[in-house]
Write a protein that binds this DNA or RNA. Structure first.
Length: 343
DNA sequence: CCAAGTTA
DNA sequence: TAACTTGGG
């Protein structure tokens, strides 16, 4: 998934409250995929309605977005358009992994190994066009803006960040930084708890903020060089050089200055369209044709979609909608009460 | 993942 | 009231 430059980044912990009033561009596909993959039962089965339609993505999207609004965060979801042709290999590989995982999931359930089952169920997650469409419908009903990117959603989000239309981009992938996003927010959740991959162990996960400026400064590199490091390690558009991870990629780029010189100096064969890959990060296909506007949710439409069509509990939906309605009134009051209570 | 109930 | 468990659809 994306480019692995985790080792080059020192994230700063922030609280959800620090994002109060901020516009955050959320990688819609990334978020929905996360919900679909994680919101599952003990044996890996996702949440489903009475028509056997998967609803995990709607559950995650609804409750999390309510929490954002309640906390004064202004989300805008950015969805992928047509993927660049260089991405087809990545897409095919992902599809194969999904298919294999689906079989392994069934086998694990038969064997009664639910831990394995859940693991493979998550890896088998497929976000359908229908799921994306009904997610957009829900956002529309909630009065939350979303944008359909011409190509990569992360590129569009980064572009909006560069323009200053959004304060930060939110995604679990690092690609945003290569696309030029100034700020990347990771682990943008409320509960602050996450399962460790593989093991049924929960750890505290804080919201993290990474700035491009800090990454470049800490590693003493330019954005062009960061992109070159990404290409060395591997991106969605190219295979990385075998045996080179983020640390050695950084050292090589710092030693030689650019990717061409690294390849020449180290005698590495790299038969992929280098400049074409770079352009996908530097000059991606994006649009200025969007407007950001947040409006009051249409409660009847939300109830019809989630309750009537997908069996969500009416009480839970109403409780969530109450929290949206009360946001701005009760929230500051609550904080004052807390303050005075402490004296 | 999040909400809500239960527990220490 | 924070920590933990379970159900959600």
């Amino acid at each position: 998934m994306g480019v692995n430059i985790r080792d080059l980044v020192k994230p700063n912990q922030i609280s959800l409250e620090e994002l109060n009033g901020k516009v955050i561009a959320i990688d819609g596909y990334n978020a929905l995929y996360q919900f679909l993959s994680i919101i599952r039962q003990y044996d890996g089965t996702p949440l489903i309605d009475k028509n056997n339609k998967i609803t995990s993505h709607l559950s995650g999207l609804f409750y999390r977005t309510v929490n954002f609004i309640e906390n004064g965060v202004k989300p805008v979801y950015v969805f992928d358009g047509k993927p660049p042709s260089l991405k087809i290999n990545t897409i095919k590989t992902r599809e194969e992994i999904r298919k294999e995982s689906q079989e392994k999931w069934s086998l694990a359930v038969e064997a009664g190994d639910y831990e394995e089952a859940k693991k493979f169920a998550q890896a088998s997650s497929t976000l359908t066009r229908e799921m994306v469409e009904e997610s957009k419908k829900l956002l529309k009903f909630m009065g939350v803006p979303f944008i359909e990117a011409p190509s990569e959603g992360e590129a569009q989000a980064a572009y909006m960040n560069m323009k200053g239309d959004v304060w930060a981009c939110a995604s679990q992938d690092w690609d945003s930084l290569l696309f030029g996003a100034h700020r990347l927010v990771r682990n943008l959740t409320v509960s602050g708890r996450r399962k460790l991959p593989g093991k049924p162990v929960y750890i505290k996960v804080e919201v993290e903020l990474v700035t491009l400026e800090q990454v470049l400064k800490d590693n003493n590199i330019t954005r062009d060089q960061l992109i070159d490091i990404g290409i060395l390690v591997g991106t969605d558009y190219n295979e990385g050089v075998k045996g080179i991870g983020p640390k050695s990629a950084l050292n090589l780029i710092r030693k030689y200055g650019s990717l061409e010189k690294v390849l020449e100096g180290e005698g590495i064969k790299f038969d992929q369209p280098l400049d074409e890959i770079r352009i996908l990060f530097k000059k991606p296909d994006v649009t200025d044709n969007y407007t950001l506007q947040w409006s009051q949710p249409n409660e009847d439409q939300i109830i019809d979609l989630l309750h009537n069509q997908h069996d969500f509990s009416l009480d839970r939906i109403k409780a969530a909608l109450d929290r949206i309605r009360e946001h701005g009134k009760s929230k500051p009051q609550y904080r004052l009460d807390q303050y005075f209570a402490k004296g």
